[in-house]
Structures are given as C-alpha cells and as structure tokens.
Simulated assay, not measured.
Amino acid sequence: MRKRRIFISILVVLAVIITIAVSGYLTINSKLSKLKTTKISQSPSSLGINTEKFNTNDINNVEENYINILLLGVDKLNETNDTGRADSNIILTLDKVHKKIKLTSLMRDMLMNNVGSKAQDKLTHAYAYGGPELSLKVVNDNLQMNMKDFVKVDFVSFYKIVDAIGGVDLNVADSEIASINKYIKEVAVVEKKTPFYLTKGGMQKLNGMQALAYCRIRSVGNGDFERTQRQRAVLIEIFNKISSMNLSQISNMLDTVLPYVETSLSKKAILSYTSYALINNIKTVEQLRLPEDKTGYSTNRIIHGVFYLDWNREGNIADLHQFIFEGDLK
C-alpha cells in the first residue's frame, strides 16, 4: 500500500476533525450549525450496499467498528446549474479496532458499472449525474462497500481554507509557474478578485488561489500522479499550520471553513466520531490508492475516443477490504 492520491476534500475534513477535537462542546455544537446538511436515502438498496455482505448482526461488528465515509471534491467554481464532477473521491475510514484513520483514494477515471442510466462510465461522472447519493451508490456497488454518508467541498472551499490559515509554504518549480498562473487567472475571473501571479520559483508562501492552482497542475511532470504529490505537500503544510494555531485562531478558521462544507452527517455523528478519535488519541493515518500499481491491476482503455482506467475487480477489491477491515469482513 503506497502513499498516493490525497484530494482537496480531505484537506477540509481532517481539518474539521482536528479542530473540533480541541474546542469546547457548546462552541463546536454552535459552529456545526454552519455546515450545509443534506439528507440522503439510508436504504441499502438506494446506496448500493450488499446487505448479505454487511449484516448488522455479524460477530465482528463491522458496521460499528469500521466507520466509512465518502469524501468528495467537486470541480465547481461558481453557483451555476452545472452540478460539477467529483474529481476527488476518497474513502475515509475510522478504524476503532486498530485505532487508525485510513484514506483510500479512487482515481477519477476508473471505469465503473451502473453509473446512473449508463451501463459503464467514469467514476467522476457519477456526481454529475446524481449528486452525492449516486456517487455513494456507484462506489458501494462497484467496490462492495457500506458507506451511508458523505462530505463534500469544492474549489472555492479549498482556497478559502488556505487563506483562513494564512497561506502555505511550498517549493515551486520554475517549470510550474506558467500553469499555476493560468489557473490563478481562471479562479480570479470567476471570483471577481484581483489575481496575484507568481513571478519566480523556489520556496515561497502561497495564498489560497495560488495553492489551489498548484494542486490543479496536470500538464507539468508526470500528469495526475505528480499532481497528487503536490496535493500531499499542501495537505502536510495545512496540518502544520493548524497544529500551531491557538484556540482563537482555530475558532476563526472554523467560522470561515464550515459554511463551505456539505455533508449528510448529523451533528451527533460528527461529535461522536471526533470525540472517539480524541479520547483514543488516534494519530496513525494510513493510505491506499485504487487501482493499485500492481501488475495487471489496471489497464488504460480508449472507448469511442474517450480515456478510461479499467481495473482488475477481484484483486483491487480484495486488497481494499483487507486494508480497511483487516480480515474482519467475511
């Protein structure tokens, strides 16, 4: 299991987990009201959950001991009728048995079955066709998972988060400048803000738009794979900044961040999961990316002129279940 794709959505979710843990209950309960809460179906069939595989009466208490939530990062910059696509799909697992947090990144171009009205399509399109509920159903159905909740953010959320913590320090390559400035301009036009372009490479502090542009680079280096390295670098910097904040700064950050987060989780669930992680001092974070890099685990395919990432179902699903449930899912 290799450290791979960490998408924009996890930046928000883990920030929320960390900051909730260090503030008072009444303050947090009040701040959680700023979240946009969206109710979705809890019917297993509507969410693509195999009830024979995930039986609430199982002896290992899988449903209780392994909390799985789908994190969605949507490529949408403004309030239009366009739903946007979920370029970021991550399974967040709170493993109560082994006291860990696990992150499983799913590549956006994975070829999935039964995506809305289509027999097959890219994972990223599930959100465009049916929002978070269809994204949950597609991931559950194709990967034999049991998720019932989601957390979603978009590009605007991301850059505002970075600004809220005072920017991030990153080492920018000279070859990345042109692409970064192109994306800065795109966001600035939509947001009707003055763009601040980069003029040189090297270690420097990036503001929210600049950091977002840095994360979006695909044309420099090794495409999507190198882009994930940039996203991890930003993630680490965000954690470093949050860990050095005092309670007043954290409170102000939550006021900025939470209005841009949408979730199906209840306040009770958020507080329960967060307090569990705090009380048990959970600091271990493990990561996996699907499809894996193993020989035969993925294949590039062109269908009607469109690129898809096909994948070995049996091998990838077996490894995913072992990573998340560590043998407890029978």
Rank of each mutant, 00 (worst) to 15 (best):
3 K>V: 15
16 V>R: 02
18 I>D: 14
18 I>M: 15
27 T>F: 14
29 N>S: 15
29 N>T: 06
34 K>F: 09
38 T>K: 14
39 K>R: 15
45 S>G: 01
54 F>C: 05
56 T>M: 11
59 I>C: 01
63 E>A: 10
76 K>N: 12
77 L>T: 11
77 L>I: 07
78 N>L: 13
87 D>E: 07
88 S>W: 00
96 K>G: 05
100 K>E: 11
110 M>Q: 03
120 Q>Y: 14
126 A>P: 06
127 Y>M: 04
132 P>A: 04
133 E>L: 01
135 S>I: 09
140 N>R: 10
146 N>G: 04
150 F>Y: 11
156 V>R: 11
156 V>Y: 11
164 A>W: 02
177 I>K: 08
186 E>Y: 09
188 A>D: 02
189 V>Q: 13
192 K>H: 06
201 G>I: 05
202 G>S: 01
204 Q>C: 15
212 L>T: 11
212 L>Q: 02
215 C>H: 07
217 I>A: 03
222 N>V: 11
226 E>I: 06
233 A>S: 14
238 I>Y: 04
242 I>V: 13
243 S>E: 09
244 S>V: 07
247 L>D: 10
251 S>K: 12
254 L>E: 09
257 V>T: 13
258 L>R: 09
260 Y>A: 14
266 S>C: 06
268 K>I: 10
270 I>G: 04
284 T>V: 10
287 Q>T: 12
287 Q>D: 06
288 L>Y: 04
289 R>S: 15
289 R>G: 14
291 P>V: 00
296 G>H: 08
298 S>F: 08
307 F>T: 09
310 D>K: 04
310 D>T: 09
314 E>N: 13
315 G>P: 01
316 N>W: 01
317 I>V: 15
324 I>K: 05
